[in-house]
């Protein structure tokens, strides 16, 4: 199929992007790495889009220290996330997640902001920022707005961002000494979206466990987190299997995914314990 775009314009800065959006009569779509949007257009799942290319806007890319937090520009590419030394040191969950995302060509173009705004329930970054307790920074006609990760993912491909808001950055807390991060997932082939995956963060305040490809949005598995805090792995596995709502598709049934989530949790726990030991 051939894409049917409504038009294309390149934004020079954020205000310009918002201006183009305001003038697009509802047809505007921000274009970042294009690794989800262009694919959808090429299958005519989305037609008539007026593309507003934000990929060349200066200042929206890269990772910087911001006190006790790291600020990640929305246009930072997956590949850059993977090799960034600050992230490797302070938020290794994100660094480790990259190898699970697609293939090199896609990681060279796809952006973390795009992955979060796209909100594929099987994507890694949304679950990572949920487990880390990140904050998303958006800019819209009414100015800046901060959205906690817990409140960002609303439904399949649906977030708290308004149509005319740009996600500009994500900030994550720096890992405290002794904090542990683990991502586990299983996909049919390397680079495929996960059949199910999870992110486990162990902090002094307690465990944070997020699960992806196990429901319409990535979730924090709170029951399992409580059990993990109590040191009861069996109960955590049981709680996890009860609190996710995976669906069935041509790759696997919900039952399989539920089983898999438990296996992955046990492996994550074993890895964290192995790392500590």
């Amino acid at each position: 199929m051939k894409a049917s775009a409504g038009g294309y314009a390149r934004a020079v800065d954020v205000p310009h992007a918002l201006e183009l959006m305001a003038g697009s009569e509802g047809a505007g779509r921000f274009l970042a790495g294009g690794q989800s949007l262009i694919a959808a257009m090429n299958m005519r799942l989305s037609e008539g889009d007026m593309l507003i290319d934000i990929s060349k806007i200066p200042g929206l890319s890269g990772v910087a220290e911001d006190g006790e937090r790291l600020r990640i520009g929305a246009l930072t590419r997956h590949a850059e996330i993977g090799r960034d030394p600050l992230l490797r040191q302070h938020a290794p969950l994100l660094s480790d997640a990259v190898r699970f995302i697609a293939h090199a060509a896609i990681r060279n173009r796809g952006t973390i902001g795009g992955a979060l705004a796209h909100a594929d329930p099987a994507a890694e970054f949304p679950a990572c920022i949920l487990a880390l307790g990140a904050t998303l920074h958006a800019h819209g006609p009414d100015g800046d707005r901060d959205i906690p990760a817990e409140a960002f993912f609303e439904d399949v491909f649906t977030t708290a961002l308004a149509e005319d808001e740009i996600l500009t950055a994500i900030s994550v807390p720096k890992a405290e000494p002794g904090e542990r991060h683990v991502i586990e997932e299983m996909a049919r082939r390397s680079g495929d979206y996960a059949l199910t995956g999870l992110c486990l963060v162990r902090r002094s305040a307690g465990h944070r466990l997020s699960v992806f490809s196990a429901g319409p949005v990535p979730i924090l598995a709170k029951g399992a987190m409580t059990a993990l805090d109590a040191g009861d792995a069996d109960a955590a596995v049981e709680a996890l299997r009860a609190e996710i709502e995976p669906s069935s598709d041509t790759q696997a049934t919900a039952s399989y995914r539920r089983h898999l989530a438990g296996v992955l949790l046990r492996r994550a726990i074993a890895r964290i314990e192995g790392e500590t030991a």
Partner: peptide, 11 residues
């Protein structure tokens, strides 16, 4: 190609 899995080099 996302849903019909062909064998890939890595596997």
């Amino acid at each position: 190609m996302a849903d019909y899995l062909v064998p890939m080099a890595a596997e």
